[in-house]
């Protein structure tokens, strides 16, 4: 039964994502995860502050259900389907250790950033700031890795290609230029 806990290779994960996107399309919906953030703002009453949140978010309730499912999927995976250890390229381990991250090849997420015991002013600021950038950027660009990366590119949308190029410029700048300053 050990195979149950094994991570899935890319050639299972990638096609499965395409399958989910196509399945939603056939049901009449468009795959995109970050619009749920806008819906949550609207539910919280953000329309008082900006017309951007005055939209037909009730038509997006299905997406909140998908979001809830994604969380349940995470719960099931963590508890029943995984060893919760991610093995990465060993060449990167010394780099990570230089940043103070020693949990590579031992955990799913670096405990030095994400474990509750590691929460301090610095990690809390990193997590919130990172979230703000993701949320702001996703809405500014009109989509995230799912909406642009998968749905948009599959529909041969040039804007989505531009957004993906942006995602990678941002990520590369962060990891290569800013990490040495932050960690």
């Amino acid at each position: 039964m050990n195979w149950i806990y094994e991570p899935w290779p890319w050639y299972i994960g990638g096609p499965a994502i395409a399958f989910i996107m196509l399945l939603l399309l056939i049901i009449g919906k468009q795959f995109g995860m970050s619009s749920n953030l806008r819906t949550m703002c609207s539910i919280g009453g953000a329309e008082k502050w900006s017309d951007f949140f005055n939209w037909d978010w009730k038509a997006q309730r299905w997406n909140l259900v998908v979001m809830l499912g994604a969380a349940i999927g995470g719960y099931l995976s963590y508890n029943f389907l995984s060893t919760n250890v991610v093995n990465i390229n060993d060449a990167l381990i010394p780099q990570l250790e230089a940043y103070g991250i020693f949990s590579a090849d031992q955990t799913y997420m670096p405990t030095e950033i994400f474990a509750l015991e590691s929460l301090n002013l610095k990690t809390i600021s990193i997590l919130i700031l990172g979230g703000i950038l993701v949320g702001f950027g996703a809405r500014y660009a009109g989509g995230c890795t799912s909406g642009h990366g998968i749905s948009g590119l599959s529909n041969l949308q040039l804007p989505s290609l531009i957004a993906i190029v942006g995602f990678f410029i941002g990520g590369l700048v962060m990891v290569h230029l800013f990490y040495p300053l932050i960690f």
Binding site: M33, G130, C144
Partner: peptide, 22 residues
């Protein structure tokens, strides 16, 4: 503009916390 600038901002956050919305 919006795709490039928005994309770069998103990417900075994605690189920093290693998690996108899904």
């Amino acid at each position: 503009k919006r795709y490039l600038f928005g994309g770069i901002i998103f990417g900075l956050g994605w690189g920093l916390v290693g998690a996108c919305p899904g």
